[in-house]
Design a protein around this nucleic acid. Structure first.
Lengths: 231, 231, 231, 231
DNA sequence: GATGAATGAGTCTTCATTCAT
DNA sequence: TATGAATGAAGACTCATTCAT
């Protein structure tokens, strides 16, 4: 048996690690109207599916488990999603869209470029690295080749925008004299690389060698902007 | 069905599709004695399995496909591996060990630290980024959480050693005055991050936005060592 | 999946596909009082169910489709019928009873026996062969073995009566000297056989080889009554 | 529950009513080589599937039941047939082809046309009416509209040939003066109609009113050829 | 050793039926 | 009465693993 051991290796999941505002499990709030109930259920399914897909990957995830975790019957899933595959694809969209929305709103044009980027980094540290959102990034890396539409979506919505935003910042930094190396603007990936590595590191190796992502990012920024006199 | 679309996206494999009477053995030498034959078969299985696992991930890979691609019968796989799961785990070891062996041999004590690292990078560019070996890295990222033993092994054999080696180089660079930022030695991950990002980028986004990995790595080294006067 | 191809072959029904806010009631009069409304709904369900059962057979018909076609909610069906099975059984009764009623009324004591039978045949041609009613016959042939009660009912109400009526006519024909072969009265089935074959032929083979049922029946009657001098 | 009652209505099938030369169940003959075993299994599956499809119709038949009846595991069916649907389609071909083969061989040009047709009829009586083969005809009538390919095949292989053969015989009969009514050659269906009705009658109404098919066919032939002086 | 037919547990998906609104 | 969201039992199909040849 192949899948069983795989399951055994992953204890019934971390469960109650509700990410959204509320677990939206049933039995709790009676809720009032039907639409609300339906929305809650849908949210519960999304939440549960995310958890399971992250824990086991697409192919090894069982809809049965998602249903159980969401506290709904198996058939209910099919009231919200066409099938497992499109559930996965929609899921990524559902989870990513609000993140993108927030990010595109954020940038308050304050202080120096370094301050701006540090704000970004700090945000990233709190909201992505080591969180469910970080795991989602790893999930996309894992399943991307088998779900081109997911990779496409992620590139379009997140990567290309992120790269563009970083490039703009870098160019600003160069213009203001904060960044010396002009070529950096051609490869904004360099700016983000350590952050991405931190995300992956936390998923895979945190157990063996915990990584102080915050400090690493600071060192990286020092590399780009020069070390700060004031720490 | 879970795999159908995935299969559609991945045409029935690029290799052997022998279906007729002839087993289509591994194309190499005819070989004479039994031990050799067995070793060849095993090698063919390893090769085929790697290919399939990389293309579809662990759960979605069918032993049937591996067998067909390797030109052996399904049962034969079980003469070499206990089951699918341990096959996967052994596989990673089998493929990684020679790579590590080569890397630990490599370091030719030549010129400057930057030259050394550039040699490394160049090697990495040719042998990893955009190759099967690069895909293996993505595979480990993908399956790591479900195969702790694989993640462990990879950390122990590759990551920790790589980090240690990089740290040694960085310290050497600092000692020789080639690298100004002392803190870098605490986070050798920063040195490797762009290379890893390049690996992942090629798997996922090459189609949308091809990345000139070589040039990116050069820019990154300029950042660390300062821009070269000559170039 | 069992039904997919079947569905593909049968475009989502020719009728109502109302999905929007409006229930798309039965198109007839708006009706005022409740009893009337209920009766109308029931009629719509019966009509829709018949259509679907004929198109797909009992097992492959979905209550969902019936409801949609009838323009009612799925639950409404259960206000009128106990379950799918008894719905099917009642349906056949509901549809057949008025037909039988009409037939037993028909026989206008006109001219010769041949004229009488020709009147019958002509009626059958117009009202059964190639119509919904003809498909019902095929449906009963198809589902009879799985619905003994339906077969029983059909035998009792239609077949045995029809046979008896035909026998009476044949005997009359023999008595009057119109029919020479006396044994025919023992097998009135022979008289009806071509008509039944025509019904089935239209369902199955009309596409390959259209059949002029009217002319065939005429030839058949000529066989029994002798060819007419005038025609 | 819809399918359960349907099942209940049909007691676990008549089972041991093996039609072919031998039941080909397992456990009996040890068989020698693999190919033979496989062929036996395939035959058992075909036999079992026919039985079940006839008893319940396509949609209501469960592969589980077919497997159980054939004495094989569910998966084994898929070694021989792509899916339920193509199993059904192939089945009809598999069962019909040898029948057609035999029929096209049969006709020994002996005696009078009536004798020839009586030989046919007698054959039909023994080999079709009231047998598995007869049920198959009913099955095709039942499922034809949902399986155009089956109806097509049946028309091409059986119906059109049968009609052509009957027409030839009728024309011969007319030429020899055995058949008076010339128009009959235009509708050979009339010649076959009572036989078909007998087939259907036996499936549906035998319980209520057994039909002496042999005698009925004789009467029908008397109608066409004139009553025999000797009998 | 090598084979590949056979197995049957496991998974996705459907749909008749129920019931709170 | 009418609704339709929710349920979960049932059924088609897959595939890792075994074992007789």
């Amino acid at each position: 048996m192949t899948r069983k051991p795989t399951k055994a290796a992953l204890p019934p999941a971390t469960r109650a690690s509700a990410k959204g505002p509320e677990p939206a499990r049933s039995e709790e709030a009676p809720a009032t109207n039907r639409a609300t109930r339906a929305a809650e259920r849908r949210a519960a399914i999304v939440e549960a599916a995310m958890e399971e897909f992250i824990a086991r990957g697409f192919a090894a995830t069982r809809l049965d488990d998602i249903a159980r975790r969401a506290g709904v019957a198996k058939g209910t899933i099919y009231l919200h999603f066409k099938d497992k595959e499109s559930m996965f694809e929609e899921l990524v969209r559902i989870v990513i869209v609000p993140v993108v929305a927030r990010l595109t709103t954020l940038p308050p044009p304050a202080g120096s470029v370094r301050d701006l980027i540090e704000a970004f980094a700090s945000n990233f540290l709190n909201e992505v690295i080591g969180t469910r959102r970080g795991d989602l990034v790893r999930l996309i890396v894992a399943e991307g080749p088998r779900f081109p539409s997911v990779a496409d979506f992620y590139y379009r919505e997140v990567v290309s925008r992120g790269i563009a935003a970083m490039r703009a910042l870098i160019e600003l930094g160069i213009a203001r004299g904060e960044i010396r190396q002009k070529d950096l603007a051609r490869y904004p990936q360099i700016l983000v690389a350590p952050a991405m590595i931190a995300v992956i590191w936390q998923s895979l190796f945190a157990r063996h060698a915990p990584l102080d992502a915050q400090e690493m990012l600071r060192v990286h920024l020092d590399l780009i902007f020069g070390e700060r006199s004031t720490t």
